[in-house]
């Protein structure tokens, strides 16, 4: 056995990744013509310039929505993958350190306060998401029990619970006919409000976060080892973990501040990617990003086309994600390996 086998595998992974990217591009283009106008399902328009209404819908409604689905899918799975490697635990995702609950609390607070503009919801969700991460981190430093990862897990649980109870109080006092509905819809997730302004407001930071995570794709392997081992092979694990935790959290909170809570993507896509590309994150991380983008694009298109009313994307991702999760766990049990 020699390095040629390794090279062949790398080549195979590159081909699969390119194939997935190609499928993503083709589907993105096709789904521009999927929707409920002028009739349900696919409608191909031969000459777009002659149909201004259709052109407007495609350019200003469907295109930003498709871009947002791709971006959200990529960052949520990349963040999930990052958290799993950093915590050396394949069962975690960004909600793990209270990020999702913090963001949900922030969004609900602004909705109830009456200034429910999307930019305010974005800012507040991002702020409280980061606050939750910071609180979990500093609380973990204060704990005098167990190792670093265990302390982070415990502080994440505590911070999540605090923000959950805060969210409960907000829902209790929210005006039932409007605010409570807005909060409920935000928590179910959805891309129906997406527009170019929202995309432009988050795209530079989210793309930056994706690039930072991508640049760490091989190093993430090392960060899943014990901190002392990672240090012994020349890493600065504390610095690298802090950078990755920050970018994964910022990318996630910014995205869910627009889309609402979308669960399971960050948990399931890294698993599926490892099944396809192997555990080496050099291939599995980009694979996870593309698969996350594909998954959310498909879920969103299903959600906005199959029924007369839109199905919130968070409900679909939860249903499909949980089903895949059960299948993976059953198969894993049969294989008897992690």
């Amino acid at each position: 056995m020699n390095s040629s086998i390794y090279k062949q595998e790398q080549k195979r992974n590159r081909i699969i990744l390119l194939l997935l990217c190609f499928i993503l591009l083709v589907l993105s283009f096709l789904f521009l013509f999927a929707g409920r106008y002028p009739k349900g399902g696919f409608t191909f328009v031969k000459n777009l310039s002659e149909n201004s209404m259709m052109k407007n819908i495609i350019v200003n409604v469907r295109l930003p929505r498709i871009l947002l689905a791709i971006m959200a899918g990529a960052i949520l799975s990349a963040a999930g993958f990052t958290f799993q490697m950093l915590f050396s635990n394949p069962l975690v995702e960004p909600g793990f350190l209270g990020v999702s609950q913090g963001a949900a609390f922030g969004a609900a607070l602004v909705i109830v306060a009456g200034s429910g503009s999307s930019i305010m919801i974005q800012l507040s969700a991002s702020f409280f998401g980061l606050l939750a991460l910071g609180s979990s981190y500093f609380l973990a430093k204060k704990f005098r029990f167990g190792g670093w990862l265990l302390r982070l897990v415990l502080s994440g649980i505590a911070i999540s619970a605090i923000f959950s109870s805060g969210l409960g109080v907000i829902k209790l006092v929210a005006e039932p006919t409007k605010d409570l509905q807005d909060i409920t819809f935000w928590m179910m997730g959805g891309l129906w409000n997406s527009n170019w302004n929202q995309i432009f407001s988050i795209i530079p930071i989210v793309v930056f976060c994706l690039l930072v995570i991508y640049s760490y794709r091989w190093k993430l392997n090392l960060l899943s080892l014990q901190e002392k081992t990672a240090y012994s092979v020349g890493l600065n694990p504390k610095r690298d973990r802090t950078i990755l935790l920050l970018v994964a959290t910022i990318g996630t909170t910014l995205t869910i501040s627009i889309t609402g809570l979308i669960g399971w993507v960050g948990l399931i896509m890294p698993h599926l990617s490892r099944k396809l590309f192997g555990s080496d994150s050099k291939a599995a991380l980009p694979g996870s990003m593309v698969m996350g983008a594909l998954f959310l694009l498909l879920c969103d298109t299903i959600g906005r086309t199959v029924l007369a009313t839109e199905i919130p994307i968070g409900l679909l991702t939860s249903f499909i994600g949980a089903t895949i999760f059960i299948i993976i766990l059953s198969l894993r049990h049969q294989e008897g390996k992690a």
């Binding site: 394949p90 392997n221 080892l225 081992t229 192997g278 555990s279 992690a338």
Partner: peptide, 9 residues
Amino acid sequence: SENYNFSFT
């Protein structure tokens, strides 16, 4: 010992 939570080769 080492963390072996992923199926690295």
